Amino acid sequence: MSTPSTVILDRPNPKVVTITFSNPPANVVTAETALRLNEIVTELESDSDVQVVVFKSDVPDFFLNHFDLAAVGDLPIPAEGELPIWTDLVVRLSTAPYITVGSIRGRTRGAGNELALALDLRYASIDNASFGQPEVGIGILPGGGGSEHLPRLMGRDRALEAILTSSDYDAAQAEHWGWVTRALRDAELDAFVDDIVARLAASDPQALAAAKAAVNRSTLPPHGDLIAAFGEFLQSLGRPGFQARAAATARIGAEVGLDFEYRMGEYIAQANQQL
C-alpha cells in the first residue's frame, strides 16, 4: 500500500483545481510535500482547461508550516542549470497562466509562508490565521522567497521586522501590512473564496493570463535572487549560530511538545534569551 500524500488534489470542475495540505498534527513541509507539489504543478502545465487553483488545509490550526529541517537532505539535488525544487515551485506558481488562490486558516510559516507569498490571491481567516518567517531566530536564512517577496509587499522596514524578529503576525496585522490580500471572519471565508473562484473560472482565460503576466512584470523578484536565497539558506545550515540555536529550540520543543508549533515565535525568542 502506498503512503498517503501530504498534498491532496481535487477537481470540482474542469476549470478549478483544489490542493489541500494534509500532514497532521502541524502540517510541516516534508520532502514528499515538495515532490508531490512539483508533480501537480507539472501536470497542470499541460492542462489548458485550468483557470483557478485553490490552496487550503484540512489540518486544524495549520495552513502550511515550516520545512522539516531534518528532511532537507531528502530533497532532490538539482542538475546543473536547474532550479532547486522549492524555488522552482515558487517561480512556476507565480508565473503560471492560471490564477492561484489561498484560503488560509491557521498558522503559515517559513516555507509554507513562502509558498503562500507565491500565490496570486491570499484570503485569511481573521479569527485564527497567522504568518511568520522564523528562520533568522534559529540562526538560518529564508530560502524560498520570503526575503524577496515580503519587501515588495510590505516595504523594507516591515519586512525587516517580520524576518529579523521571527514573530508570528495575526491576519489582521498581515492584511494591514499587505502580507495578505484580505482578512475575513472565519464564517465568511469559504463563501467569499468560492465567489472569487467562480468569477475567475467564468472569465476569459487568455485575459486572466495576460493580466497576471502584466502585473508580474513589475512585482516579481528576479529568478537569480531566488536562486541566491536558496543557496544562502543551505550555507546557513552549517553555521555555528544555527547549531547552538537548533539545540536550544529542540530542548524547549521536547519540554512543551506540540505547543511549540502553536507558539513558535515566542519559544524561539525564549531559546535565544537562554544562550
Rank of each mutant, 00 (worst) to 15 (best):
R156L: 14
E45C: 06
T33L: 04
Q235N: 14
G143Y: 02
V29R: 02
V54C: 07
G265M: 03
T95S: 13
H223A: 10
R109E: 09
L150M: 10
A198M: 13
E261G: 14
L44R: 10
R152H: 01
A244M: 14
P222S: 11
W177D: 01
I19M: 00
G253V: 04
V101P: 04
L237I: 00
L189E: 02
A171L: 03
Y262N: 14
F242A: 13
V197G: 05
P151K: 01
D195R: 15
G132N: 00
A207S: 08
D194T: 05
A248P: 04
Q270C: 01
P142D: 02
T165F: 03
A254R: 08
V215R: 15
L44G: 03
T3G: 13
N23A: 08
L150N: 02
D190E: 09
R105S: 15
M264H: 08
A269F: 00
F242D: 07
G253R: 06
A201S: 01
A269W: 00
V41Y: 02
L141K: 11
S130T: 06
E188M: 12
L37V: 07
D186R: 07
L89M: 07
M264C: 10
L141Q: 13
G155W: 00
G73T: 02
V180K: 02
F192M: 11
G224N: 10
Y169P: 00
A159Y: 00
P76I: 14
E232N: 13
L164H: 14
R158E: 06
D170C: 05
P25I: 04
R105E: 14
L83N: 04
A116S: 05
L93N: 05
F55V: 03
W179F: 07
F233M: 03
V28D: 07
S218K: 15
Y169W: 07
N13D: 12
Y262A: 15
G106V: 09
G137M: 00
P12K: 04
V215S: 15
S236H: 07
D225Y: 04
T18S: 14
L35K: 10
F230Q: 08
A248Q: 08
A183Y: 03
V16W: 09
I85L: 11
S5M: 10
G112Q: 00
R239F: 09
R239E: 14
A248D: 10
A70I: 05
R156E: 13
N27F: 14
